[in-house]
């Protein structure tokens, strides 16, 4: 299938890109990896009048640690995360999720920030970022602001970004060495979106007590959802199977899945229960080993 006509610009500087964004307003779309946008254009589900291709902007491809944050620029591809030693040392939740995004070839192009901006409730990264208490950086010609991940996605395919803003970075706080995380996902095949997935994170103190926790759900709510009630339950406790079962119950209760070809709501809820329990157990193992 073939996309409709559009204007195209490939700015070489951030200022130029932001200028175009503020000038052209509504019918402009940012083109990052293109792995969601181009298929939609080919199917004629999207027909932007203009694309601003950000792939030639300098300085946005880095994964770096500074000021207590792990920072991912707008052009960090899914596979950059999967191949990063820094990520695998610092953020096991991200490392666990990366291989399950799309497929290996799509991962060479698709970006983490693009996935967040796309705000597909079936997308994986938003849950990872929710579980890790991430923030995104929105930049426009008039300045820059930081948006906590939990306020970023406002509705299905809708974010807090303004039309003139570019998402330039997503960053997650780096915890101490005793951190563990996991991403449990059920896909029918490589390249499938998750039927249900659960991102988990546990930070332990010296005594093995839980001092930080993150749980977030993919594909089972109208948007990616952070299970704050379960996180609160875990924090301050000594980890135990019973505790994880209780957290899993809360997660299952929080989910509001729909019946569809991927299965009935009750099934998905049960998978959330199983995955939360398994994910917390794996996170604990990694944290204890850390």
């Amino acid at each position: 299938m073939y996309p409709p006509k559009f204007d195209y610009a490939a700015p070489r500087s951030l200022d130029e890109a932001l200028g175009l964004l503020s000038d052209r307003g509504e019918d402009v779309k940012v083109l990052a990896g293109g792995q969601s946008l181009i298929p939609m254009m080919k199917l004629r589900l999207a027909s932007p009048a203009m694309l601003i291709d950000i792939n030639r902007l300098p300085g946005l491809s880095e994964i770096a640690e500074s000021d207590g944050y792990l920072r991912l620029g707008a052009l960090v591809r899914h596979n950059d995360v999967g191949n990063s030693d820094l990520v695998s040392r610092r953020n096991p939740t991200m490392a666990a999720a990366a291989p399950w995004i799309a497929d290996p070839i799509v991962r060479n192009r698709g970006t983490v920030c693009g996935a967040l901006a796309h705000a597909d409730p079936l997308g994986d990264w938003a849950s990872v970022m929710l579980a890790c208490d991430a923030e995104v950086v929105a930049t426009s010609a008039s300045g820059q602001r930081t948006i906590p991940m939990r306020d970023f996605i406002t509705d299905v395919f809708t974010t807090a970004l303004r039309e003139d803003e570019l998402l330039t970075e997503v960053r997650v706080p780096v915890s101490g060495s005793r951190t563990g995380g996991d991403y449990q996902t059920l896909e029918r095949k490589v390249g499938d979106y998750a039927t249900a997935a659960v991102a988990t994170r546990l930070d332990l103190d010296e005594d093995g007590r839980i001092v930080g926790a993150g749980i977030a759900l993919t594909s089972v709510c109208s948007i990616n959802t952070k299970v704050t009630e379960a996180e609160a339950l875990l924090i301050g406790q000594q980890p135990s199977t019973e505790l994880f079962v209780e957290a899993a119950e809360i997660a299952a209760r929080t989910a509001t899945p729909q019946d569809d070809v991927r299965g009935p709501a009750e099934y998905k809820r049960d998978v959330v229960r199983v995955f939360t329990r398994r994910g917390l157990a794996t996170s604990l193992e990694l944290a204890q080993a850390g």
């Binding site: 792995q35 181009i38 070839i105 799509v106 192009r109």
Partner: peptide, 8 residues
């Protein structure tokens, strides 16, 4: 490797 149907 890239999918050339999804790159302009």
């Amino acid at each position: 490797p890239v999918k050339s149907c999804t790159v302009f």
